[in-house]
Structures are given as C-alpha cells and as structure tokens.
Simulated assay, not measured.
Amino acid sequence: MSIDFLPDKPIYQQLMERISGDIIKGIVKPGDKLPSVRDYAVEAGVNANTMQRVYRELELVGITETKRGQGTFVTKDEIKLKELRKDMKETLIASFIHHAEGLGFSKQEMIESLQIRKGGE
C-alpha cells in the first residue's frame, strides 16, 4: 500500500499526519504497537530514514513512546491524545478559513454554510 504524497509538503509531515489521524479515528488505539520502522517504510513506500524521523518526531511531541527492544507504542496519556485531537481540529479549521477567504468568502458565509450542514444537509 504505497501512499500518494502531496508535492508541496514534506513527506515526513504527511506521514505524521496520517498516523495522528489514524489515532484520532481510533484505527490505532492508545497503547498499540506501531509497525517497525522498516515495515512501515516498506508499506508507505518511503526510505527507512524518513520513517525513523517520523517516529522520532512523534515521540518528541509525546504521541508515541519507544520501549527499548520492544518497539514504538502509541501513548496512553489521554491528555496528550486530547491535545492531538484539538490541535488537528484547529489546524484543519485554520486551513479551511484561509482557503475560503482566499476565494472571497466572508466569515458570515462560512458560518451560514456550516450551520446548514449541521442541520442535516
């Protein structure tokens, strides 16, 4: 399962977002072991060094923890996972607003459209 990467964003960031998204969606659960760096690199179709960076960055922000000789695991820290969810939500909202404003939509138009969608459209 090779991944189609966007050309305008570093691959390691896209992989971090993918893993974070899988955690938020519950595909990967707190305490789950992630595939080895090599296995995930092969699965994603990237260099093992890129995958190693992804795992290192995820650990630096507290999303994962590496247990020597056992592998890399998703944190069980509920506060960290709630922060991850909140951060991803805010990033998506900021991106949406930026793109919509770039197309000339007012904040009021965006709010009205979101309220209509919430109502069951």
Score class of each variant (00 low, 15 high):
residue 67 K to C: 02
residue 19 I to D: 02
residue 78 E to W: 00
residue 115 Q to S: 06
residue 31 G to M: 02
residue 23 I to V: 12
residue 9 K to Y: 10
residue 68 R to T: 11
residue 121 E to C: 04
residue 61 V to S: 08
residue 81 L to M: 05
residue 61 V to K: 06
residue 60 L to C: 07
residue 118 K to Y: 10
residue 99 H to T: 02
residue 117 R to P: 03
residue 114 L to D: 12
residue 89 K to G: 07
residue 82 K to Y: 06
residue 20 S to P: 03
residue 2 S to I: 13
residue 19 I to R: 01
residue 65 E to G: 10
residue 61 V to A: 04
residue 36 S to F: 12
residue 18 R to G: 00
residue 99 H to C: 08
residue 48 A to Q: 08
residue 75 T to H: 05
residue 75 T to V: 13
residue 52 Q to I: 01
residue 62 G to F: 08
residue 29 K to V: 00
residue 10 P to K: 03
residue 115 Q to C: 11
residue 86 K to L: 13
residue 48 A to L: 10
residue 50 T to N: 07
residue 83 E to A: 10
residue 9 K to A: 12
residue 115 Q to F: 08
residue 82 K to C: 02
residue 101 E to Q: 15
residue 57 E to R: 03
residue 105 F to I: 10
residue 41 A to P: 06
residue 88 M to V: 13
residue 31 G to E: 09
residue 82 K to Q: 15
residue 14 Q to F: 11
residue 35 P to L: 02
residue 73 F to T: 00
residue 16 M to G: 12
residue 95 S to N: 09
residue 75 T to F: 08
residue 45 G to A: 14
residue 70 Q to W: 08
residue 119 G to R: 10
residue 115 Q to G: 03
residue 40 Y to Q: 08
residue 94 A to T: 09
residue 92 L to M: 14
residue 21 G to E: 15
residue 17 E to K: 10
residue 107 K to S: 09
residue 62 G to H: 05
residue 58 L to Q: 01
residue 67 K to Q: 00
residue 86 K to M: 14
residue 34 L to R: 01
residue 62 G to W: 02
residue 2 S to T: 09
residue 37 V to T: 09
residue 11 I to S: 05
residue 51 M to P: 00
residue 56 R to G: 12
residue 40 Y to H: 04
residue 39 D to C: 04
residue 79 I to P: 07
residue 62 G to A: 06
residue 52 Q to T: 13
residue 11 I to F: 06
residue 88 M to G: 07
residue 86 K to S: 09
residue 96 F to N: 10
residue 23 I to H: 05
residue 33 K to C: 05
residue 90 E to M: 09
residue 23 I to A: 08
residue 52 Q to G: 06
residue 35 P to D: 09
residue 119 G to T: 02
residue 11 I to R: 04
residue 77 D to M: 04
residue 21 G to Y: 13
residue 44 A to Y: 13
residue 92 L to K: 13
residue 120 G to H: 03
residue 68 R to Y: 00
residue 44 A to N: 10
residue 61 V to P: 04
residue 5 F to G: 04
residue 91 T to F: 14
residue 83 E to V: 11
residue 83 E to C: 08
residue 89 K to R: 15
residue 23 I to M: 08
residue 54 V to A: 01
residue 4 D to W: 12
residue 45 G to K: 08
residue 54 V to Y: 01
residue 65 E to H: 08
residue 84 L to I: 07
residue 72 T to K: 06
residue 74 V to H: 03
residue 94 A to G: 09
residue 19 I to K: 02
residue 77 D to C: 06
residue 76 K to D: 07
residue 98 H to T: 07
residue 9 K to F: 12
residue 118 K to M: 12
residue 44 A to F: 15
residue 89 K to N: 11
residue 61 V to W: 01
residue 64 T to S: 05
residue 6 L to F: 15
residue 37 V to E: 04
residue 115 Q to H: 05
residue 116 I to C: 03
residue 76 K to I: 06
residue 3 I to F: 14
residue 100 A to V: 15
residue 62 G to Y: 07
residue 79 I to T: 10
residue 23 I to D: 09
residue 34 L to K: 01
residue 14 Q to C: 11
residue 100 A to K: 13
residue 91 T to P: 00
residue 103 L to Y: 02
residue 111 I to L: 11
residue 112 E to I: 09
residue 31 G to V: 05
